[in-house]
Design a protein around this nucleic acid. Structure first.
Lengths: 213, 213
DNA sequence: TGAAATCATGACGGGGCGTCATCTGGCCTC
DNA sequence: GAGGCCAGATGACGCCCCGTCATGATTTCA
């Protein structure tokens, strides 16, 4: 009979590598992020309040403030999370690329795929006209931005030497990608390939290089 | 002695075409906008509260709500105001232009000049790191956007026929102008000419056409 | 097992929000 | 110029959100 109990001496059958203390902490933090994503999606960022997020977690109000200081901080954490997931993808493209064009095309394509994927976690049910703030300069986002600029610098140098104003150029490229990406998401069906092609041509050759419709 | 009084029978020496009623209305509306501009400039948009704006006007709280429903609505009114002032400038450029390049150069130059001018009414004293929301789609802003697209359509058609995706193209151009414009404002000295040249070349010829530094 | 550390809890004071009953003074009529 | 009318200015009010903190429950450690 001694073998009937699966875990006779351990009251905790779950993976308990980290102490319970630690586990509830990560669970709470995650619960807050999940609740925030849902609430921002349903109410819009501006309308949403910290209490809305708290209510959805079921936690006490004080608990929220053990993890984040404000609505902004939660939003930044979500943005940071997105950037953190995107960074390795971008790096992979950077490593894979052989020249500027292939890097650019890979990076933009990757970004648009990423956008399309994220799209659904967010735009659930949002009242029309509501708008999201553009992600603020969180550490991870700055890192992505810098990584793009550095990759540009490296690839361009290796490609052909002429030095352009990297700050302007990076800002312009990201602006084009972001804006065309946004517009892409508004169309049905969503055409990642077409949008990426447009953005790449725009950056590489400007107006004369754009695809004709 | 009867001619000593300058306005013997009219108690109101000022231009009194509209009644006093109407004049205080305009004055209040303007006072609220002025106060809002100052408060947004000093506290940043996020931090500012409706009460901050109200306090600065010296009006009663209820009075504010006779004119605007919320902080957002005041901000939109300010943005609308900017767009309304910019529109005729843009139209003048559109009329003056003979081909796409001259239109683009004129419009971007005008926008950057406008930006530099507005700059000072806003960035007084703002705590670092604070960020403004990108202007929402108010009627006047949509009008400017549409005007740009229509001007693009007309000039491009007249220039050389090949049809591009106008929505993407307009969005991309505005994105480039906005982002390069923002970066321009962060540099000292502010170089409107250089920034405009960069943006124009970027749009017209992409990377290969950019000025070398 | 008992002490210490950790942290979830929710009540609380502070303050911003938008409303509304009241009052003020400009406007119109005679 | 007297009197009535009404647009609209006023600010107190009730509501809710904010962030804090004293308390207590639970885990961890000795």
């Amino acid at each position: 009979m001694s073998n009937i109990a699966y875990f006779p001496t351990r009251p905790d059958p779950e993976d308990s590598r980290p102490g319970k203390r630690e586990r509830t902490k990560v669970a709470n933090r995650q619960a807050i992020l999940d609740a925030a994503r849902a609430v921002f999606g349903e109410l819009g960022y501006e309308t949403a309040t910290v209490r809305d997020i708290i209510r959805r977690t079921g936690l006490a109000s004080g608990t929220f403030y053990n993890y984040y200081k404000s609505k902004e901080e939660v939003f930044d954490a979500l943005a940071d999370d997105g950037a953190r997931r995107f960074r390795p993808i971008l790096r992979a493209e950077s490593d894979k690329a052989v020249d500027f064009e292939s890097f650019l095309r890979g990076a933009i394509r990757a970004y648009f795929d990423f956008l399309e994927g994220e799209h659904e976690s967010w735009r659930i049910n949002r009242p029309a006209g509501e708008v999201f703030p553009h992600a603020r300069a969180t550490p991870e986002i700055v890192a992505v931005f810098d990584e793009v600029r550095d990759a540009f610098a490296k690839v361009l140098e290796h490609d052909h030497a002429p030095a352009v104003d990297l700050d302007y150029f990076t800002a312009a490229c990201i602006a084009v990608a972001r804006e065309v990406g946004d517009k892409m998401l508004e169309r049905r069906p969503i055409d990642v390939e077409g949008a990426a092609d447009f953005a790449v041509r725009m950056i590489l050759g400007g107006l004369p290089a754009l695809p004709r419709s």
